[in-house]
């Protein structure tokens, strides 16, 4: 079957200049890669003959020690609770913050710019580093972990939500203002109905993110299952490690699945 009309356009490289440019970018990328590999002593062979050898460990992981599961489950539940609390609090705080960050509601740059700036900074700080700092202040336990999750997810959620607010239909807002509604009524009647489904959906998404993040907070003493994982790995108790990994895996998959199904129905 020949179709003259859909002759493939050969989008291949045409001009000499582009050829040179692409080649040089390629050389730089690969050269830098070799450099970084040497710098970070990354040799794939080490996977096999490194310290303990990956294959060695992989063999030791099986069979998992199922008796250990009864120790792991309470910790897993604590981890989930941390994520639930942090997501809820972050969601509540994010409401006023994202309203203030929305340029269509607060056109004054002196209001929305500083708020956005703070949120941007919060998003760049790794949650586990926040956890370390809070552990330093509040001592070990779930509280510093929850605080770290709140702050990190607040930055994320506020950004997602304010971008949604900025994309809403402004016409109803004008109508509510024109009929004498005050700012809170404008938000309640014209903004909220338009962003609510998205807001809930983002809340669920941030919950997924928080579940993953909370799994490792225990590495630094901020509560949850990470403590056990860190312990068992350093004791080289690999069947227990495998139990933890399987439990983490299954719970993350289930939570993501449920959350995704809910989000699909929302929008």
């Amino acid at each position: 079957m020949m179709r003259k009309t859909s002759q493939p356009t050969l989008q291949g490289i045409t001009s000499n200049q582009t050829k040179i440019r692409i080649t040089s970018i390629f050389v730089i990328v690969v050269g830098f890669y070799l450099f970084t590999s040497i710098k970070t002593e990354s040799s794939l062979l080490d996977l096999w003959n490194g310290k303990n050898g990956f294959i060695n460990i992989a063999q030791n992981l099986f069979p998992p020690n199922w008796n250990y599961a009864s120790t792991v489950l309470p910790q897993l539940i604590e981890t989930l609770h941390m994520a639930i609390i942090a997501t809820t609090i972050a969601a509540i705080i994010s409401i006023p913050i994202s309203l203030l960050s929305a340029a269509n509601l607060f056109p004054n740059a002196f209001i929305h710019q500083p708020v956005r700036f703070i949120m941007n900074v919060l998003r760049t700080i790794p949650d586990i580093l926040l956890a370390l700092i809070f552990v330093g202040i509040f001592g070990v336990g779930v509280f510093p972990g929850i605080m770290a999750l709140i702050i990190f997810s607040l930055g994320l959620l506020a950004k997602l939500v304010y971008e949604t607010i900025e994309s809403i239909d402004m016409n109803p807002i004008e109508a509510i203002r024109a009929s004498g509604g005050n700012t809170l009524q404008v938000i309640g009647y014209a903004v909220l109905p338009q962003v609510l489904p998205q807001f809930v959906s983002f809340g669920l998404y941030v919950f997924e993110v928080n579940v993953r993040a909370s799994l490792v907070l225990g590495f630094v003493g901020a509560g949850g299952i990470g403590l056990l994982l860190n312990q068992q790995v350093s004791w080289a108790n690999y069947p227990n490690v495998m139990t933890i990994i399987i439990i983490i895996f299954v719970s993350v998959v289930i939570i993501d699945y449920i959350s995704n199904k809910l989000r699909e129905r929302l929008i």
Binding site: N171, S179, G180
Partner: peptide, 21 residues
């Protein structure tokens, strides 16, 4: 201003209803 606006109704080209409500 709000008192004035309650007494002045406005109709728009694009209806300006909250579509999801």
């Amino acid at each position: 201003l709000r008192k004035l606006r309650t007494k002045v109704g406005m109709i728009f080209q694009n209806y300006n209803l909250v579509k999801r409500s």
